[in-house]
């Protein structure tokens, strides 16, 4: 083909006709790119759709559960010995748990051993569906007076007699733990221990616990107590719940001087 023929209008026309195929191919490739982008958007929409709503519903359920728990605690009947009705032994003297709390506050501005036990036993019952996986703190706090009337913490702990079992619960892959299985909770080894605590600082939970345990679900309610002079004092009753987590500050509450905790022993009779 000579230069002359290249310059001829016929050749240009032919070249134009031949380019049509390439243009169509490019168009379809652009179409593929656009469709891929649309599909990617749709895919991400599918993956993320409902996630936020789901987490909101779960969060709503947890908060609702905590609020219901506080309500139930305020309705419940217990034995005056501080034991649950199911564990009656000897004289059956029934009372409302709330009445016992108000009576104790009116007398001494603090809860008696029997009332503390009754509160712990009631929470233990009410939160039973999640007792394997839930740690919690229940407290009456007067923010204006800057003090706790009562602070109870329920923490999953390893029993003192076999600490190795608890280490293996967390590290079951360790060759030394070949007899332990993944996630197999062994109730005698890891159990929920209730503590009655008297810290000096009412912000101790906000400072040392809540920031480290993950998501905390809280419910608050107001309780009115009358002291011996008939003066009304309003306390915030708060229940904070979180999924059990191994946090250094909660590892040995008995020894922690900031919390100043004493374990609540259900078996030991109150004086």
């Amino acid at each position: 083909m000579g230069i002359k023929s290249l310059k001829s209008p016929n050749f240009l026309k032919t070249t134009k006709i031949n380019s049509k195929g390439q243009a169509a191919l490019m168009d379809s490739l652009f179409f593929l790119v656009i469709v891929s982008a649309v599909c990617t958007t749709l895919f991400f929409f599918t993956v993320n759709y409902g996630k936020q709503l789901d987490s909101q519903i779960n969060s709503f359920y947890s908060t609702d559960f905590a609020a219901d728990t506080i309500k139930v605690v305020s309705y419940i009947n217990v034995l005056r010995t501080g034991m649950s009705v199911y564990d009656a032994d000897g004289l059956v003297e029934l009372d409302y748990l709330l009445a016992m709390m108000k009576e104790d506050y009116g007398n001494k501005k603090e809860f008696s051993c029997k009332t503390k036990k009754a509160i712990a036993s009631t929470f233990n019952s009410v939160l039973k569906p999640f007792s394997d996986s839930l740690d919690y703190a229940f407290y009456f706090v007067n923010k204006s007076e800057d003090r706790f009337l009562f602070l109870m913490m329920a923490i999953h702990e390893c029993s003192d007699d076999d600490p190795e079992a608890c280490v293996c619960y967390d590290n079951f892959n360790d060759p030394a733990c070949k007899n332990y299985v993944s996630g197999g909770n062994n109730p005698p080894k890891i159990s929920l221990t209730h503590y009655y605590c008297t810290p000096n600082n009412i912000r101790i939970l906000d400072q040392l616990v809540f920031p480290y345990v993950g998501k905390v679900d809280k419910a608050t309610s107001k309780f009115d107590f009358l002291d011996s002079s008939g003066r009304s004092v309003v306390f915030d009753a708060e229940l904070a719940m979180w999924v059990t987590k191994d946090v250094p500050v909660l590892r040995d509450l008995k020894e922690n001087k900031d919390f100043n905790c004493v374990p609540i022993n259900f078996e030991e009779p109150c004086p």
Binding site: G21, A24, L25, S28, F31, L32, I34, C39, L42, F43
Partner: peptide
């Protein structure tokens, strides 16, 4: 050659659309 990407695109789109 240009039909292949178009068909693939349409198939991809309708599949993802159905899944969504």
């Amino acid at each position: 050659p240009s039909l292949i990407p178009i068909v693939v695109s349409l198939l991809l789109f309708f599949t993802i659309f159905a899944i969504t």
